[in-house]
Amino acid sequence: MVNILENKLKEKISSLIEELEIIIGYSESKAPLKINPVFIKTKEEIDRLIFNNLCVNNLATYSYYLSADTKGKIGIILKPCDVKSIIQLISEELLIKNKIKTIVIGCNGIIDYKKINKAVNYQKIISAKLDENNITVNTIDKSFNFKLKDFFAQKCYVCNIYDNPPYYDEFIENDLKLNLEKKKEYEDIEEFEKSGLEKIYKFWEEEFNNCIRCYACRNICPLEVCRDKCIAQLDEPHWQSHKINSSEGKFFQLIRIFHLAGRCTECGECERVCPANIELLKLMKKVNQIILKLFDYRPGLILDMKPPLLTFKNVEQNIKDEELI
């Protein structure tokens, strides 16, 4: 089944490659359960393209910088949820719509590497094999067999655009459909908050003890196009201390979440790439939950809508003056 989809993808790309300067897609990786972003320019390279449940990376990350470096049009292979990042960038006027050709593939869910890593007791994964419903994972001295449906990324459980992307130039339908028991949006955040402020604070205290301020979270984010102009690294003015420790890590993350409030499309890349395994998506989701409540707005769904934090109304429906004091 997967091969049929990949063939459809390759055919589509063959028909488009002439008009595009470069195409960003997924290719095989030597590392188990991982894929590599690949940049192709010629017909001969098309065979390197793959698409399967391991194609986690949100390739929209490359759109902003690559579009500044190229004269022609860029093709990007995206999952329906990744398109949200492109929509958001266009609606914020950070990307020019005509520079990007979005080639969207219907998705039947993506695998969360960290979930699998946890299930094998954090032993190093040596090799893995994936088929339609199962996944076999080998560590140095043990082999594990898992059902695929237990290891999808958090976002898949609330996804309702997997075969219906909010925007695309080309859409490649996937015969396999996402078949998961849906969860309520922000259910996990509400559950987490029940533990009370004290416990929540302790949780973040411990999480950020491991933060080394590597900025992988910032640099992988498709919306943080400001990575080379970041106030966290400026010397003059010295807005934030450059010390690498837990409290500065937390402070940097606070800047990030406010910066992404009402912009974050919850692709989960920041959490995926964190070498300290910090659960960053929780923070992002919390802020988005507030934005949803205040402005009835979900980032990355409507192309020509002005994001609420980029504009203002004289009277906001959901913000009461007395609550602001």
């Binding site: 690949v38 940049f39 590597c214 900025y215 992988a216 910032r218 992988i220 990575r227 010295h238 450059h242």
Partner: peptide, 25 residues
């Protein structure tokens, strides 16, 4: 290097990378 996102993950876990910055606060 096309896919590199220029974060510090590789250098910060590297046993031999020793670059540092000095600042007064």
């Amino acid at each position: 290097t096309k896919k590199c996102i220029s974060c510090a993950a590789c250098t910060y876990v590297c046993p031999t990378c020793v670059c540092f910055n000095i600042a007064d606060e």
